[in-house]
Design a protein around this nucleic acid. Structure first.
Lengths: 180, 180
DNA sequence: GTCTATAAGATGATAGAC
DNA sequence: GTCTATCATCTTATAGAC
């Protein structure tokens, strides 16, 4: 039941946004009563935290699987963006789940925003690890390349969420490929 | 009155997000009755469109003023990001208004998302114009540099909205400076 | 652990007086 | 053009039966 709620809520949060998705819709689509929902989660924002946590875990696990297919360690750096392209094609071009969740919070809620920042840092650490094992051309430093991949990736996902295509992500792949 | 509503709503939309801001709060802070609000705007999303339109106009006007202070046309390319740093410091580190508004819409509302895409294109055209007059080193093409500036800028604003600082934007300045 | 019924309040929007 | 009063609906969350 808890898993079913997380699945349904995750899908709706990502497609519609956190604020746009009400408890009523979540329980209706999951086929679960309201009382049961509040047995498993203490509040709507508690559900959001659980969802974001699972999202980042799955993102890293999925990246491991995706990059394992790429033999050349240099190509894996560009593969970090290709992975995002694959994710977007699979999940409806709604951009980054963390960014979308962050935009759906009041400016007041610094606690939750801080937590999102920590999750984002986990993703950045993963990117940095891939780059450190890549043996790239060192046109720019490891750190600068990490900035490049993270910032270009996030910027391109912004375009993805607005235009509902992967054009910007493909531009990002081209820009990064020239540097590795 | 209409201007006062736009000012108040714009500030609240940007600080809190579109969905988080109710008509009641807008009219309370603007000191205007609900009936008067609906005399000036036909709906809440009508107000959003007017606000976004004005935002992009002001963004371009502000960029003109900001870049006029920079003598070297090459330095103006990096100045496009410095401009965003100045904006964020002035307005509370909430990222890009268009991105934030887009995240606050249902997936269903394709019409409004398309309009946001057009506004975003106006900003990109402005960036492309600055670059075409910059006489940069041509390490990469005009088009690739435009992608770079737009995507790095948007990506860095994502970090700004999450961490409430300009660290990522300053990294973007460094990356771009190395290319011009 | 799941359910139904309900609470208290906020939401966007409208009607009609002045 | 601005106001007050009101509408139906939706929101998150709780109480208590089974």
């Amino acid at each position: 039941m808890r898993e079913r709620l997380l699945d349904t809520a995750g899908r709706l949060f990502y497609e519609q946004g956190y604020q746009q998705t009400g408890i009523n819709q979540i329980i209706a689509e999951a086929g679960i009563a309201k009382g049961s929902f509040y047995y498993h989660f203490n509040s709507k924002s508690g559900l959001l935290v659980a969802y974001l946590d699972r999202f980042v875990n799955n993102w890293i696990l999925g990246a491991d699987i995706f990059l394992a297919e790429i033999a050349d360690p240099k190509a894996r750096v560009a593969g970090l963006i290709s992975y995002r392209i694959a994710n977007q094609k699979k999940n409806g071009f709604n951009g980054c789940a963390l960014v979308k969740a962050n935009a759906g919070l009041e400016a007041v809620d610094g606690e939750l925003r801080k937590y999102i920042g920590e999750l984002k840092q986990q993703m950045r650490d993963y990117v940095a690890a891939v780059i450190s094992h890549s043996g790239h051309k060192k046109i720019i430093s490891d750190e600068a390349l990490t900035d490049m991949v993270v910032l270009l990736g996030d910027g391109a996902l912004v375009g993805t969420a607005i235009y509902h295509n992967t054009d910007d992500l493909e531009k990002a792949v081209a820009l990064i490929t020239a540097l590795i």
